[in-house]
Simulated assay, not measured.
Amino acid sequence: MENNAELVRLEEFVDKLLNKYNQLKADFHSLQATLSERDAECAELKNNIYNLTTERTEVGNRVSGLLGRIEQWESDQETFSAEKGGGYESIQGSLFSDSADGKNS
């Protein structure tokens, strides 16, 4: 009888161990899936960062180009104004005025 009770206890202990092992195994697979999802998300975010950095660089270059063109235009207007004897301010002022006749407000 005593041996039988010991075998029952041993069976219960083994069952508990197997249940805990199966639970740990399930948790492990769940964590692996989560890790895979996070790795994919991380790769996607790194790609987004690269794309945004590239876009930012391109926009910066385009803005620099526009500023260069504006500076060149201003330089050309100063030269033109000096050759024609007119004032630089009047030319630039007419460009940026609100009125249709070209006078500053």
Rank of each mutant, 00 (worst) to 15 (best):
Lys46Tyr: 12
Ser30Val: 02
Asn47Ile: 02
Gly86Val: 08
Gln72Arg: 06
Glu44Leu: 05
Thr57Trp: 01
Lys16Ile: 07
Asp98Leu: 07
Glu41His: 03
Glu74Arg: 09
Asn22Asp: 15
Ser105Ala: 08
Ala82Glu: 13
Ala100Asp: 14
Ser99Met: 03
Ser81Lys: 07
Ala26Thr: 12
Leu95His: 08
Ala5Lys: 12
Asn104Gly: 00
Glu2Thr: 08
Asp15Tyr: 03
Phe28Trp: 08
Glu71His: 00
Gly93Ser: 07
Ser90Leu: 06
Glu58Leu: 05
Asp15Met: 06
Val63Asn: 05
Gly65Leu: 05
Glu78Val: 03
Gly87His: 01
Glu12Tyr: 00
Lys103Ile: 11
Arg9Trp: 06
Ala33Phe: 09
Arg69Ile: 01
Phe80Thr: 10
Asn48Trp: 02
Ser105Thr: 07
Val63Tyr: 04
Cys42Asn: 10
Tyr50Ser: 13
Ser30Cys: 05
Leu17His: 00
Glu55Asp: 11
Tyr21Leu: 12
Glu6Tyr: 01
Glu2Asp: 14
His29Cys: 02
Gln72Gly: 06
Asp39Gln: 11
Ala26Leu: 12
Gln77Arg: 03
Val63Ile: 15
Asp98Arg: 03
Ser97Val: 01
Phe96Cys: 08
Val14His: 05
Leu45Trp: 02
Leu95Gln: 13
Val8Ser: 11
Asn61Met: 09
Ser30Gln: 12
Glu37Arg: 04
Val14Ala: 11
Leu17Gln: 08
Gly102Asp: 06
His29Asp: 14
Ile70Leu: 15
Ser64Thr: 06
Asn51Gln: 10
Val8Leu: 13
Thr57Gly: 12
Ile70Val: 13
Ala33Pro: 07
Asp39Lys: 09
Asn3Trp: 04
Cys42Gly: 00
Asn47Ala: 14
Ala82Ile: 00
Gly68Asn: 09
Glu2Ile: 07
Lys46Cys: 14
Glu71Leu: 04
Glu12Gln: 11
Asp39Pro: 01
Leu7Ala: 09
Asp27Pro: 00
Ser105Gly: 15
Arg38Met: 14
Ala43Cys: 02
Trp73Leu: 13
Asp15Cys: 04
Asn3Ala: 10
Gly60Glu: 15
Phe13Asn: 10
Gly68Val: 00
Leu10His: 08
Glu41Phe: 01
Cys42Phe: 03
Val59Asn: 06
Asp76Arg: 04
Lys103Cys: 09
His29Val: 07
Ala100Leu: 13
Asn51Ala: 08
Lys46Val: 13
Ser105Tyr: 06
Leu24Pro: 00
Gly87Val: 01
Arg69Asn: 14
Leu31Ser: 10
Ala33Leu: 13
Thr54Phe: 01
Ile91Met: 10
Ala33Gln: 15
Glu55Gln: 11
Gly65Met: 03
Ala82Lys: 14
Ala82Cys: 03
Val14Asp: 07
Ala5His: 04
Leu95Asn: 10
Leu45Tyr: 05
Glu6Ala: 09
Phe80Arg: 12
Tyr21Phe: 15
Ala26Lys: 15
Phe96Pro: 01
Phe13Arg: 10
Tyr88Leu: 15
Thr53Ala: 06
Tyr88Trp: 06
Gly86Cys: 11
His29Thr: 09
Ile49Asn: 02
Ala82Val: 00
Asn61Ser: 12
Glu58Pro: 00
Tyr88Pro: 05
Gln72Glu: 13
Gly102Trp: 04
Ile70Glu: 11
Lys103Ser: 15
